[in-house]
């Protein structure tokens, strides 16, 4: 452990002030479930660290039919909310009970693949992030926030303070596939949202996790779905498109080849599940 100073600010203003005084050398942690393992192993050797556990950004509030989620809201709180079932499901499939009691929703947006299971659901919901620093506050689409492998649009003097989820338009499904059922790194995670006018799809989101540098939208697959009636041919074509446009990698969990094959399979299953849901509800 190389840490010489650990700051625990009690408000956002204090946190922003510490960040502007200490600059980019100050490592920020929230739940610590990504940062602490690296520190324990000596892979990360920070001298100054700021913990966000007491800054008071841990509330979830309904807002305009959607949700306002404070950045340091725990995954357990996300699991317990009832407003957006897909987010509860994404939290339920993330890590384990003890880790969910520590890990935060904001931290999940910084988690490198194959992590980031909640980010995938947020991407399918068109979530926005709020960033605040000494130069003020700005809002960005999540799709613009995640810029690469472990890189984001966050400026050095900024903190992620909240996540905005608009009212959910359409139906959703969330599927995470790992090597085991619980507490498992993802082979592929799929979050789908489809809005329809009668039978015809008017808007579609197909978000993929663990098959790219961060959560990705499969835009070609989305384009296939819009205008379709989710008939089997369209579902197959969308699954094929998603498999082509994803950017899978090899790791200890799965090969890139296998991940691509599983994208094809699980995008199809997610869409089939969605069709079934709607059929059941329509009865």
């Amino acid at each position: 452990m190389t840490v010489v100073e650990y700051f625990l600010p009690r408000s956002l203003a204090q946190a922003v002030d510490l960040l502007s005084r200490h600059g980019p050398d100050l490592l920020v942690i929230a739940g610590g479930t990504v940062a602490m393992p690296l520190i324990n192993d000596g892979i990360s050797l920070p001298r100054q660290v700021m913990g966000l556990r007491f800054v008071g950004l841990d509330e979830i509030e309904p807002s305009d039919g959607g949700l306002r989620i404070g950045a340091t809201t725990t995954l357990t709180s996300l699991l317990r909310q009832r407003h957006v079932p897909m987010l509860a499901e994404a939290a339920r499939r993330t890590a384990s009970w003890s880790i969910r009691n520590m890990g935060t929703v904001g931290g999940n947006l910084f988690t490198p693949p194959p992590g980031g299971d909640v980010a995938v659901a947020l991407l399918a919901l068109d979530a926005e992030v709020t960033l605040e620093g000494s130069r003020g506050r700005r809002t960005l689409a999540l799709s613009e926030f995640q810029t690469g492998f472990m890189t984001t649009a966050l400026e050095p003097q900024e903190l992620l303070t909240g996540i905005g989820v608009p009212a959910v338009a359409g139906e959703t499904t969330y599927v995470k596939f790992g090597r085991k059922e619980a507490n498992t790194p993802s082979v592929v995670t799929v979050a789908v949202r489809v809005a329809r006018d009668g039978e015809v799809v008017t808007d579609a989101r197909v978000a993929l996790g663990a098959v790219g540098p961060h959560a990705l939208r499969a835009r070609k697959a989305e384009a296939v779905l819009v205008g379709s009636s989710l008939e089997p041919g369209a579902i197959d074509e969308a699954a094929e498109a998603a498999a082509e446009e994803c950017e899978p990698f090899d790791d200890g969990i799965a090969s890139a080849w296998y991940r691509r094959a599983m994208v094809r399979l699980f995008v199809r299953r997610a869409l089939e599940e969605l069709v079934q849901h709607v059929a059941l509800e329509g009865r």
């Binding site: 650990y6 625990l8 610590g32 479930t33 602490m36 393992p37 324990n40 913990g51 556990r53 357990t76 009970w97 003890s98 880790i99 009691n101 520590m102």
Partner: peptide
């Protein structure tokens, strides 16, 4: 509430 004490800075349980 259960937590992993290996990931918890002790200052956080003040």
């Amino acid at each position: 509430e259960p937590m992993m004490s290996c990931l918890l800075p002790v200052e956080d349980v003040e």
